[in-house]
Design a protein around this nucleic acid. Structure first.
Lengths: 198, 198, 198, 198
DNA sequence: TATGAATGAGCATTCATTCAT
DNA sequence: AATGAATGAATGCTCATTCAT
């Protein structure tokens, strides 16, 4: 009897073995041949585990983003105050050196999704957004609960999140200093929403 | 001298004659052949006036955006209070029915710029950003001058602008309701920054 | 010995279990994977019983054609006169509703054989041809024996048979009305070859 | 001003320069690269003159068939009696040594058309059929007019033509002797339809 | 100045067959 | 005997740009 392979696990393994390649080449410059060679398998084997090129690229990006999200959450544990947490949430997203390529890939993926009509891509983007948004909302909520910030601040969470996305994109193009922009905005904002002790 | 002026004018004329085409086909689906045919000139002639495809697409997009900006400024004249102006600034950008295709093209242009390394594109994006940002800053500044809002609010302008960009993109993918999101954010914000009369 | 018999029988069983699939998908759209799944066996097992894809497709087509031939002979028993039998021989081949898909598959098989060099395919085609030809010749011979038609008519049998093949193909492409064409030809022919009683 | 090329003529020239290649390689084994190289032009240039691969293959086949038809008509001028003309009509179609490869290509084309759904291919096949059929009908008509054959013979023309197609195909597979088959059939037929002088 | 004919690199995908277990 | 995981060859087509006229 032939070996029965765990398809899900093999998918993941192939994807993982190719994540380096994706981070370095970018999405568009990736060929199935390269992927197969990198994964040490035949081109046809790719298609045993993935529907098409989009499918495998997705799988890799998902793995990269999952890794990024976990790391973000771990990182946030180092901070306690709301303002600190928010600062570091964005600082991690924008500046963490280790995830430079992750950012580059995410931007490219965003660009592709913007002009593609793939529902799958769109859904994945929504999922990503929701996950990161939930983390940010959690930070704010805790701040409200601890009476660090006014409860009206909750109305700013979504906006702040979209701001981050806009800034991420703008940073990629305008060479603006996202760090300073954010610092300014967040400081101004917190001065308005923070509850000052007497 | 006359020749140079002619070149500049012919560039503009060619671009203008093709703006409809761009709005309807999008950037990627536009071919030099189509452009030449629409402009009523030969393919080679395009290259007499434009460096490459990017160059002519730019020229067209610039014209479209200029038109959009003028219209935005005209539209804003109908409103007086800061909050109203800000609302309508964003409402125009996000929802004006007449500029549906402009938005679509801008998004596509953004996507292309995100993954291209063309300095020219980047510069044009900065220019665009600066123009629109200046309008928004003007609105805020006038509000501060008139003591409608606290002067600290100026620190929020840039952020608000990036928020708009992020929302524009997100709206394109997540089917979020940009209007409601903005309303929430701006209302929350203005409740914090508005100077209440005694 | 028993093993060999089993092999032959298993071949037949696999083929039979797949004949529906072939009739519905056609030859080109048939994959080994589908065949294996339909037969309820593994892909590798197909190759235990069949040399290659061609081999199994053959086996199925043979079964289909055998079925068709038997049915044709049964059907012909309903008619007695030569002219009637010939009419119905062709009518069955061209028009029997029940065998629509059989015809479609036969045409496809013919097309493949035309451009393949497989001796096996060629031999099978000869066999098919000979079987059907023999039936037609039998009809004519009986007509001659019964003095319904002139004995020279025997020289027309082969030609009539090839005509049928040509018509079958042409019908598939030209949307000619094979039934009328045949009626015309056979009527004209029989008027020439029939022995008119005083 | 750039040169204006006669597209129709260039199509024909490209097609003609590739007809040898088609005759030798067959249709399926033909690649666009080969065609371009043979025609001494770039791959892209092919697509300036032809919609797709099918389009150029068609053009070549049409040229080959046109050549074949002209030659057939020239050849027929050498014969006068109906029986002779009919014999040579078929003899030319089946046996002319010079057109061996033409026959091979025609068969391959037929096979492709049989399983394709291209209306263009089908239409071309009908056109071919009609042209050749008209020649055959002309021969018979003249025979009737000259009272060489009975007028009922006209009812046999179509059938005879389909017979030819069937025979052409069968010959390709069954290694039957088309010449003898035809001789038999035609002789038998003419013995029935010829008007014998007292 | 204007033209339009010519160009050619670059890549996803299918599926019959093999063979280790 | 039975299986199913792995394989890899092979090819049409687009379109921005050039340059001879």
């Amino acid at each position: 009897m032939a070996i029965i392979v765990d398809k899900v696990e093999k998918r993941r393994n192939i994807a993982l073995s190719c994540s380096e390649l994706l981070l370095e080449n970018g999405i568009k410059n990736l060929t199935i041949s390269q992927l197969a060679k990198t994964a040490g398998i035949g081109k046809g084997t790719i298609y045993e585990y993935f529907k098409n090129k989009e499918d495998i690229v997705f799988e890799i990006i998902k793995a990269l983003i999952d890794e990024f999200k976990s790391e973000l959450e771990v990182n946030l544990k180092n901070y306690t105050g709301v303002r600190d947490k928010v600062f570091n949430y964005f600082d991690f997203i924008f500046n963490d050196e280790k995830y430079k390529n992750h950012r580059k890939i995410y931007i490219e993926f965003l660009a592709i999704t913007l002009t593609s009509n793939s529902q799958e891509m769109i859904d994945f983007n929504i999922e990503c957004k929701d996950d990161l948004l939930m983390i940010l909302r959690g930070i704010f909520q805790k701040g409200v609960d601890r009476r660090e910030i006014k409860k009206e601040a909750m109305g700013l969470v979504n906006g702040l999140f979209f701001l981050e996305k806009g800034l991420l994109i703008e940073q990629n193009m305008s060479k603006i200093n996202a760090k300073i922009e954010l610092k300014n905005f967040i400081n101004t904002l917190f001065n308005l929403i923070e509850i000052k002790e007497k």
